[in-house]
């Protein structure tokens, strides 16, 4: 538990707390990025190089951007004036305190935990690749299927449905056509953006 580890851990926890408690959603998303980057640094401190870089590639490079886009597409980027907490927020805080107390007690009172750090394992990319192709081949294929299903599902869910031509308030037919082309374009844009972030996450994995 070197000093660097403690400092990074404290910074990560502060960023995570900020991500959950700030008013403005974009600030929350950016604090989440700091928390995820701090976690990647913790993985690097624990000699898990591949996982640390994969964390930055997938989480910071794809999931954070996805969250930011979702904030913008749902028009939640302005600082809200109304209450930000649900009505039963106190019960939620109590529950999470109880969960932390339980996990902390379980961690601190276990006697069978190792004391020193064993020598650093040889976690080269070649070893990971060998294991992925021999021992973990089934999870790898299942993950491929899952990512494909998630990609197609996300595009279909986020795609705009066919707007019926009943917009009589518009009046002019040329305007309706233009708005439909606009709808099509924004639908393609939105589904492309969602699928882009998805495939980027998938491409970063494979």
């Amino acid at each position: 538990m070197s000093l660097a580890f403690i400092i990074i851990a404290i910074a990560t926890l502060f960023a995570a707390a900020a991500a959950m408690s700030l008013r403005n959603l974009v600030h929350c998303a950016l604090s989440l990025v700091v928390a995820l980057a701090g976690l990647a640094a913790l993985y690097l401190a624990l000699d898990a190089q591949f996982v640390g870089f994969a964390q930055i590639l997938v989480y910071v490079g794809a999931v954070a951007i996805l969250i930011v886009f979702a904030v913008l597409l749902t028009r939640s980027d302005a600082t809200p004036n109304q209450a930000i907490l649900a009505p039963d927020w106190f019960a939620g805080i109590v529950v999470s305190a109880v969960v932390f107390a339980t996990l902390g007690w379980a961690a601190l009172s276990s006697t069978g935990l190792p004391r020193e750090m064993p020598p650093a394992p040889v976690a080269t990319v070649k070893n990971i690749g060998d294991l992925l192709m021999t021992q973990y081949i089934l999870p790898l294929e299942v993950i491929g299927l899952l990512l494909t299903a998630a990609l197609i599902g996300a595009v279909i869910i986020a795609m705009k449905e066919e707007t019926p031509k009943s917009s009589s308030s518009r009046g002019n037919e040329a305007l309706t056509e233009k708005s439909e082309i606009g709808n099509r374009k924004s639908e393609i844009d939105q589904s492309l953006l969602t699928s882009a972030a998805m495939v980027q996450g998938k491409g970063g994995r494979s």
Binding site: V33, F50, F53, A62, I65
Partner: peptide, 18 residues
């Protein structure tokens, strides 16, 4: 010279978009 150097390059390249 990281063992996963190319992955590191693409990972930090993704942070530019943010």
């Amino acid at each position: 010279d990281f063992d996963a150097g190319l992955l590191f390059f693409f990972a930090v390249g993704g942070a530019v978009e943010l």
